[in-house]
Nucleic acid binder design. Sequence first.
DNA 1: GAACACAGTGTTGTATACAATAAGGATATA
DNA 2: TATATCCTTATTGTATACAACACTGTGTTC
Lengths: 237, 237
Amino acid sequence: MNKPARPAPKELKQNAASATVAEGLELAIHEHRLAPGTKLGEDEIGEIYGVSRTVVRSALQALAHEQLVQIERHRGAFVAQPSLREAREVFEARELLEPRTAHSAALRAVPEDIERLRRHIEDEHAALAASDSGRAVRLSGLFHIEISRIADQNTIAGFIETLIARSSLIIALYWRRESALCESHAHHALLEAIAANDAKQAEELMRSHLVDLHSALDLREKGAAPRSLKEALIGPG
Amino acid sequence: MNKPARPAPKELKQNAASATVAEGLELAIHEHRLAPGTKLGEDEIGEIYGVSRTVVRSALQALAHEQLVQIERHRGAFVAQPSLREAREVFEARELLEPRTAHSAALRAVPEDIERLRRHIEDEHAALAASDSGRAVRLSGLFHIEISRIADQNTIAGFIETLIARSSLIIALYWRRESALCESHAHHALLEAIAANDAKQAEELMRSHLVDLHSALDLREKGAAPRSLKEALIGPG
DNA sequence: GAACACAGTGTTGTATACAATAAGGATATA
DNA sequence: TATATCCTTATTGTATACAACACTGTGTTC
């Protein structure tokens, strides 16, 4: 077993200032404080963080590369609005990648991994109890990311991270109000399978969990434009 | 000599200038004209392309996001040198994703897709006949990318693109001289399966092709440092 | 009254200037 | 001669200035 000896809590980004701005924006998007379509003016952000447009631009370009923001030439940066097609693609990709990582994670997990996952689930419960749905979505995503980290496949984990980031936007756009946000049960079952080193079971639970998530979205063919317009109107505030 | 010579107006990126620089650097890396470890000075690149450091920095950061270059704070940008571990991860990810895209491509391919693939293979032959191994590597990668495009799954296709880009670096570092670069046979078989809409066969051929590629690399455990040092010494010139 | 043209304004794209840090070399000392 | 320290220099990180473009509102014309 090759010891990577590099837990890598976060990806080491090159320039600290731009990373701070990018993380701030990313968190706001994940927690649904920034709605899809929101204009992200460079001057405005720069003033908030006390940095120049140079730094802000760097951050925005990084987020654009993850497809969290869309940059239109001479028009500016906006929080991305994934299309129905992109939404479907993102979940299909997750359904391909994540069962595999759940399998590996179940084989590799050590007690401290289990402990970390358990704490995540507790936090999710707390966020749900506090009706902080933004934070709940964020934590739910982190749970999946944590599993991919345990699988010890950084490359695939990186892909999954971007997919989960985009999923956050997809949920903001297409979540069906009528379907409850009760993932913590599925997460708990997943945790048990991983704790028991039952790889087959973990893989299958992850697959069905993702299918459930996917089907809780309203991805029927229809113009997404009116919806995004509404979002844009109530979003920026 | 150093004519920027814009390659193609492929994807519409946000800022044209930085995209041109990024594409030029990326092509040079793909064709092994820039060796792993080569220092990429901002002023130097800016002078070559006739743009300011602002644009160059933007391009370098984009390439860093694809992990083609590594940026070290206050030290600069260097052509990335994937570790043994990263090399293994990249090929494991390809072995997970690409058989699936080959399957889909076989189901969806229309005659003009087949024609395009056929031309690619011809170009590969021509490059090999001309002993232009850099171009051959590049074209070989493009063949795989083309298949993922036919599969019509943009999200996964994007992942595969970055994996193939990194593969180019991995080949530059770890290719075993003794193993021949005779992929065009495998590519031809793949093309036939796709043309016949034989999805199962295409999937299996892709899988075995990737395994062959993987095993043609020298990924044994050993200090990669001396090798990269040598590369660095003869690289920049 | 409607449609078009045009200029004003604000935002982004790029270049340049300045600040901060790291690498390399020279000098002095043991 | 080896080593350590300081200084020089080159390169990157960030801020600011200027240029180019897009949007909006007003005025004119039919």
